[in-house]
């Protein structure tokens, strides 16, 4: 089976006053059709830049300097600007955190959805509206025909995010990238949307990359998980492998610092220090200064250790029996 999305050695750099900053450093992963890949990391880990880099949305002073992004076998990085534009929205779609950034506030929902349909497909306006109505129905919007006539400000935050997801679905893309798509929503609404996203992946066969800082969300939603730290994927595996038996000390530290895993009132194990600035990364493993397992060896580049598809970028991975 060809992977819906195959990212190989993706590297993105930014030119800053402090020098070159590698925001995405040799990132590789694949997502099969119908599967959800959770890309987790804390702020500044490079998870959002990874999403933007996949879609070729990096502008100066940033630049994708290496790697390949294969969508259904086609390398997006080798396409001309015009061909890439044809792929975006049709083959690869993105959903952002704030739906008001995606939706045009002065156009009715139906008009802007129909426009998005007709950019890629020759279709009459009425057919396009019908197509949009069906997409709204798929994401669980009640009385979709009426919502088509609404302006974005007339919808609640949860409804707007559903519209944004429906827009991403218009062309039945092979890959959907969602960047913190439920972070701004209330838990009860988040629950509804996550349930629908899961169903979408199962029924439409779209490959979904779910970018978030929230480990609880990915552990219940995703099939596979990549953990990012300082621009690198430090651990990659199925959700069972990564959450059930983390091998990277950083992943272990993240999981340990979740309050729900401890008896109430107990002191939480904490990762010392804070996330490093990308312009001032230590040599070798970037997690070294905060790592309880660090040794002199960690001043050199950590090796990639793969067992049963569970990959970890570490000199001293945790051993699991």
């Amino acid at each position: 089976m060809t992977a819906a999305l195959d990212v190989k050695g993706l590297t993105t750099r930014f030119e800053t006053r402090a020098g070159h900053v590698t925001a995405v450093n040799d990132v590789s992963f694949t997502v099969q059709p119908g599967r959800i890949m959770g890309l987790v990391g804390e702020s500044g880990s490079g998870k959002s830049v990874t999403g933007f880099s996949i879609l070729g949305l990096i502008d100066a002073p940033g630049e994708v300097t290496a790697g390949a992004v294969l969508v259904d076998g086609v390398d997006l990085r080798k396409l001309s600007k015009e061909d890439l534009r044809k792929m975006r929205g049709r083959k690869v779609a993105m959903v952002f955190q704030d739906p008001m950034m995606t939706l045009n506030p002065v156009l009715r929902v139906g008009d802007q959805m129909a426009m998005a349909v007709r950019v890629h497909q020759a279709m009459s306006k009425s057919d396009a509206l019908e197509h949009a109505r069906k997409a709204l129905e798929v994401v669980g919007i009640p009385s979709p025909a009426e919502r088509l006539k609404a302006y974005p400000h007339q919808l609640s935050g949860g409804m707007r995010q559903r519209v944004a997801i429906a827009m991403a679905l218009l062309h039945s893309p092979s890959v959907i990238i969602a960047d913190e798509a439920t972070t701004a929503l209330d838990v009860s609404i988040q629950g509804q949307i996550l349930a629908e996203v899961r169903e979408l992946a199962d029924t439409t066969g779209a490959a979904i990359v779910w970018i978030t800082h929230d480990l609880a969300v990915v552990s219940s939603l995703a099939d596979d998980i990549c953990v990012m730290y300082a621009g690198r994927i430090v651990e990659r595996g199925t959700a069972e492998q990564v959450i059930g038996g983390p091998r990277h000390p950083y992943t272990q530290g993240l999981l340990d610092s979740i309050p729900a895993r401890h008896e109430p009132g107990r002191k939480l194990p904490q990762i010392p220090g804070s996330t490093p600035q990308l312009s001032r990364l230590p040599d070798g493993c970037p997690f070294r200064p905060r790592c309880p397992r660090a040794s002199e060896l960690c001043r050199t580049e950590p090796p990639l250790d793969v067992r049963d598809g569970h990959a970890v970028l570490c000199h001293h991975p945790l051993e699991r029996v």
């Binding site: 949860g158 209330d186 838990v187 509804q192 996550l194 349930a195 219940s220 939603l221 729900a260």
Partner: peptide, 24 residues
């Protein structure tokens, strides 16, 4: 109850989201 049920928790295996229907 509904609030507790709709909150994703860190655990292994796919979670089920028992969503509260409707909006606030």
């Amino acid at each position: 109850r509904a609030l507790f049920a709709s909150i994703p928790t860190v655990g292994t295996g796919r979670g089920r989201f028992e969503a509260i229907k409707g909006e606030i």
